[in-house]
Design a binder for these strands. Structure first.
Length: 450
RNA sequence: GGCGGCGUGGCCGAGUGGUUUAGGCAAGGGCCUGCAAAGCCCUGUACAGGAGUUCGAUUCUCCUCGCCGCCUCCA
């Protein structure tokens, strides 16, 4: 079984499944208050890769990822644009899934919406109030962190050091600066649900607790998300579930951030680039490759240069895919697949896994050049196996050739056949000017887009 | 102020106490080709600086410098 870094333990640990052969995982999804940014894309890709890899390994994965469709920023946008919060949420959820589709990120098994779980959230909060672990104030309901054993587990800090470092605004009625809102009382004009403490809306942290436990059950296997969520979001999820007597996730995993010029990219810093824009400019697979070529916990710089390098690398893989398309389909080279598996099982070491991919690509090319099609086929099968396991398709198909391009190619072939090389080179220049590359292969001339 | 991370060859980016190399992109040389393209082969004296532990450190310890993150909404 795979080993992953566990944020609660601060080290890599075996992922021990609750039920043999089945994986229950929850990943915090987006708040749909705007277009997704590049960082969201990395998050989605990292967990998609993990999910696909586990499925490839024969596990039955139940992947739950939520949509936060009620939140302060959604309300702010709705008010600013003079429309309903629901309207805003629906629009940006659609944008989210459009981007996910382009990236090749599989749809979650279930994608719960916060607004559909308000009743259960109210129930959870009521239980915490009744148990004396949460208290009401004039603006909502707060959880008392002093009532939670081990608060600070995910922050990896003691309650005291968290308290001394707190920069939270002092709210007079809060018993501790670290206490956080379970319920926010509605201000005039805000969307609101009824509750024993007055109309309002649930706090962000509560939804994930209710939805993950409802859809995955007590003690589910894995809870993931961006590293920025470790504290306070996940800390507070854990705090609530522990306070309410639940057995929460068995394993916490977090992905590192995307950096822009060495800085974290985030909405609040305003230095973000939307995923929508990025995907309009580059092959979405290139972004997947950038993500795969960095370790999921390390920060990664997403720039024109890194995307460009990945695009070129992808072109090489696509060329390989085309070249081996005619090889017989045979069993994948077992040793190569095992090396891939070892890399992936070692805390999802995708950079090493990708190195294995290029290793088999090279091995297949070498075998083929050496006149060993059987060996080439086994390595090519391994390459497809590995690429498929991480959600990367190797462009096996050829480009559609428009008639005018085909005519130029045919004219060049005729010129070459007549040993009119000057004419042939002129035609190749014209093709290149039109964005096409010609390759003379033993099997005939091949044209492809640049 | 508290907690944590990082600094690897032109760029991106893994990894390891020592015999043989991560890998990708870029670059140079060769093979192949009418010439190319694609592919294959070869090449580059990389581990921030200092001290220490060790037979031996890029890999462990300490210090210095630089960068970054979390402690507030945030993937």
């Amino acid at each position: 079984m795979i080993r992953l870094h566990d944020t609660a333990l601060g080290r890599v640990a075996d992922v021990e499944l609750r039920d043999a052969g089945k994986v229950s995982m929850y990943v915090c999804g987006p708040t749909v208050d705007g277009l997704p940014h590049v960082g969201h894309g990395r998050m989605a890709l990292v967990w998609d890769v993990l999910r696909r890899y586990l499925e490839w390994g024969g596990l039955d994965v139940r992947f739950v990822s939520n949509i936060t469709d009620i939140d302060d920023k959604i309300i702010a946008r709705a008010n600013a644009e003079g429309r309903s919060a629901t309207d805003v949420a629906v629009q940006y959820e659609e944008a989210w899934y459009d981007s996910m589709k382009a990236l090749g990120v599989k749809r979650p098994t279930v994608d719960p919406h916060a607004t559909a779980y308000v009743d259960q959230m109210v129930e959870l909060i009521a239980g915490l109030v009744a148990a004396g672990k949460a208290y009401t104030t004039s603006d909502g309901v707060y959880l008392s962190v002093d009532a939670v054993p081990g608060y600070g587990l995910l922050a990896r800090q003691s309650l005291d050091s968290l308290r001394s470092g707190a920069r939270v605004d002092v709210v007079e009625e809060k018993r501790s600066p670290l206490d956080f809102a379970l319920w926010k009382a509605a201000k005039p004009g805000e969307p609101a649900w009824d509750a024993p403490w007055g109309a309002g809306r649930p706090g962000w942290h509560t939804e994930c607790v209710v939805m993950s436990l409802d859809l995955l059950g007590e003690g589910f296997d894995l809870h993931g998300g961006g590293i920025d969520l470790a504290f306070p979001h996940h800390e507070n999820e854990r705090a609530q579930s522990v306070a309410a007597g639940h057995d929460f996730t068995r394993h916490w995993a977090h992905n590192g951030h995307v950096q822009m010029a060495g800085e974290k990219m985030s909405k609040s810093l305003g230095n973000f680039r939307t995923l929508t824009d990025l995907l309009a400019e580059v092959d979405p697979r290139a972004y997947r490759l950038v993500v795969l070529q960095s370790h999921y916990r390390a920060p990664v710089e997403v720039t024109g240069a890194t995307l460009d390098a990945a695009t070129r690398a992808l072109a090489g893989l696509d060329g390989f895919g085309r070249r081996v398309a005619d090889l017989p389909s045979v069993a994948a080279d077992a040793a190569a697949v095992e090396r891939f598996r070892a890399a992936m099982d070692d805390d999802l070491d995708t950079p090493r896994a990708m190195a294995e991919l290029w290793g088999v690509v090279k091995a297949a090319n070498t075998a083929r050049d050496a006149g060993d099609p059987a060996g080439a086929a086994a390595f090519a099968a391994a390459a497809r196996e590995i690429a498929g396991a991480v959600g990367l398709s190797l462009g096996a198909g050829s480009d559609e050739i428009p008639a005018d391009i085909a005519a130029l190619v045919a004219a060049r072939d005729a010129a070459r056949a007549g040993r009119d090389f000057a004419g042939a080179d002129g035609l190749r220049d014209r093709l290149e000017a039109l964005g096409w590359v010609v390759e003379d292969t033993p099997g005939g001339t091949r044209a492809r887009r640049q």
